[in-house]
Design a protein around this nucleic acid. Sequence first.
DNA 1: CAAAATCCTGTAATTGGATTACAGGATATC
DNA 2: GATATCCTGTAATCCAATTACAGGATTTTG
Lengths: 311, 311
Amino acid sequence: MAGRKRQVEDAPIDLVSRIQRVEARLSPAERQVAAAVAADFEAATRLTIAELAGRAGVSQPSVTRFCRSVGCSSFADFKIRLATTLTVAAAYLKTDRVFSDDIGQLAQSVMMRAANAVRAALDQLDTAALGAAIEALAGARRIDIYGMGGGSASLVEDAKLRLFRLGVPVSAYVDGHQARMSAAVLQPGDAVLAISNSGRSRAIVEAVQIAGSFGAVTVALTRPGTPLAEAAAIVVPMVIAEDDNVLVPTPSRYAHMAVIDTIATGVAERLGARGREALRRVRYTVASIGVAIPTPSTDPTVLMRGRGVRE
Amino acid sequence: MAGRKRQVEDAPIDLVSRIQRVEARLSPAERQVAAAVAADFEAATRLTIAELAGRAGVSQPSVTRFCRSVGCSSFADFKIRLATTLTVAAAYLKTDRVFSDDIGQLAQSVMMRAANAVRAALDQLDTAALGAAIEALAGARRIDIYGMGGGSASLVEDAKLRLFRLGVPVSAYVDGHQARMSAAVLQPGDAVLAISNSGRSRAIVEAVQIAGSFGAVTVALTRPGTPLAEAAAIVVPMVIAEDDNVLVPTPSRYAHMAVIDTIATGVAERLGARGREALRRVRYTVASIGVAIPTPSTDPTVLMRGRGVRE
DNA sequence: CAAAATCCTGTAATTGGATTACAGGATATC
DNA sequence: GATATCCTGTAATCCAATTACAGGATTTTG
């Protein structure tokens, strides 16, 4: 099973967004499978390979190949992951509203982009790196947050507030000089969180290098393979396509914000009982939303529901 | 004892509670399977029959019999249902485990809350008001943005950048005094964008009132029925539940950001050909990736426009 | 423009997981 | 104590899924 033409990416958390993300790279037959799956996601979780192949009009091995291409180890794995994704998506992303006016369609476009960015972030999340980042920040005596450029400024501000509320001493800098100066007074036991989608801001990279040389743990939320990713000790990699057209809002902010929220929540948990209680409430809320899904049921004792009736 | 020993109940939606409920009626071997499954629900979704039988210390057919007893038609069916149940029920099932053991679970909770907030915003969007807001801001000679409180600061910053990039003269204030001072020098032809989830910040309300009294058009993105909503000429109503627990990230930021992005994009469109081209690209991008939501409904046109390239 | 290489995709074979059939054994009941 | 019933494992069978392979299409290069 060595040496496939297309590398198999790690197991996706959000399979639907993964399928969309790689669709362009799929072969024609595989794309037909993707279309067949997209035509009825729900059914795809119950079909056999032969049935799905029939719907897509391709051979059975093409279905298996499709599953591998979207990051699953087997068809069975694909079905499990799809079922999981669908449950989550059904609970959170369903909207029945149809917009007929221009403004409504505009809003829908923009917001779906935002939602997709969050899902894309979830899909490609390196949970190990994220765990390490949480660990590092939770254990820090003091945290410096660096971000540069217009887009990052508000993110940095947001991250600062997030961690500040947890009672962690935190400073945020969007200015290169100030960031470097602050980095120079860090000590072992301190931590840095650097945020940059491009990963190429020289000032941030230098500030991170300085902080590292003084013994601080450096965490970067950025694109892999960039100078910033090289400079930081812990990298949470995140590739979000940037539209270089300044008029179009970049959805990467949503992705970064979501990652930051996750980090903050993880740190909250690490900080003891108070944080854990908060976390429990997050989970409770999540589960409650699940309950809200309208579903014909025959069992009143059931606490939570997935999708409605099958078929 | 008439009839069959155990009737096969209908397909369960919440498999976990079903297992617990029927456990007393299971045979010893089946109960061992139940115990093995309960020991690690997550793993059970990936195991083969042989592996699960091994863990339970029973034969493979006993596993199949167990699946039937809990209402599933087959082992495969059991796995799919279990995976579905786990997704929704993760919060309850894992209460005893350290949550950060599974960063992915945490990320999924946090990020789906974010996506959900965006969806909620879209669902309740008042497109007429949004259109009026876009109209007002696009026609303004100068725009002041007001926001108050920790959560709004980064939003205001973000909105400022957004509009700034469109070439609109824009100022942002998160300080009450400064906001009021700035409002006092506004003139007819200027516009104010006030952002507040609570709508109760006295400083913002006053600033908006001042701006209005000097002839500026006032737009508020806030909760309806609040003082701020009363004070502003144009209100884009938005009700997002706030969790008052400061440790939990509030997803309302995502909703507000999405609305602001929509406004900014709409303004861009109004500002001429360049803006319109940008907008076309947004829509195109969305259309190509926007297949988005798996929905029980069979109507694929609900969520996406022009996804037609498929065949 | 021709030739070669690479990639795609279906057919066929094989593997192995899941189910069914069956029989031995335990338990309860009369 | 005998019988009937139910439980559970072994073995056989079936079928879904994967792998191997080859033919054909497309692209690249000389």
